[in-house]
């Protein structure tokens, strides 16, 4: 068995490097459940109302994860849409429990974009030429870009061959 002192030695080193911090204040489970229940249908069936970020997370940098789908995206087979909903919801709920999720929602079909030629709404399924459709977003907290990327990498979206743009958010 490893020496008992080893665990403290490693955690001390990681705290000194800023990798570990005291565990964030947890949102009571009933609170999370109530908020999620109130979020009509949750993610992919409407807007995901995340629990308020923990106190520690408020001062942590925020990041926008933009979920793209293009021709490579492996969407659900007919009749299996609910599995995708559940998969993304579980991931989002995990982040929510950690206090790392600020907001998130599916971007449903409709709307469009404005170009510099005028203010007329142009409807398009390909909101960003060459990049595919933006079909959802999450706002998360993470201490740095690598951490935000690691969170994004844990998303089921990449497993389905979608792409995620990661952008830091300025102060609101």
């Amino acid at each position: 068995m490893p020496p008992a002192r080893l665990e403290a030695r490693i955690t001390d080193a990681l705290r000194a490097r800023g990798v570990l911090r005291p565990s964030p204040r947890r949102i009571p489970l009933w609170h999370t459940a109530a908020l999620l229940a109130a979020s009509a249908g949750a993610f992919f069936l409407g807007r995901l109302t995340a629990p308020s970020p923990a106190t520690d997370a408020v001062s942590t940098p925020r990041w926008m994860l933009l979920l793209y789908e293009d021709d490579q995206f492996e969407g659900p087979a007919p009749g299996r849409e609910a599995d995708y909903v559940a998969e993304y919801r579980r991931w989002a709920q995990t982040l929510g429990r950690q206090g790392a999720l600020v907001d998130g929602a599916e971007l449903v079909p409709g709307g469009g974009w404005l170009d510099s030629a005028g203010a007329e709404l142009v409807e398009s399924e390909r909101e960003v030429p060459g990049a595919g459709r933006i079909t959802g977003y999450f706002v998360i907290t993470a201490p740095n870009a690598d951490s935000a990327a690691a969170v994004a990498a844990s998303s089921p979206h990449l497993l389905h061959r979608g792409r995620i743009a990661i952008k830091p958010l300025g102060a609101s």
């Binding site: 800023g18 570990l20 964030p24 942590t60 995990t94 950690q98 201490p143 690691a150 969170v151 844990s154």
Partner: peptide, 19 residues
């Protein structure tokens, strides 16, 4: 899930579980 917690929030409890 544990790695995500460590990376996202520096959660020491999650790291200790991995350890």
């Amino acid at each position: 899930e544990l790695v995500t917690r460590v990376v996202a929030t520096g959660d020491e409890a999650a790291f200790r579980a991995l350890y």
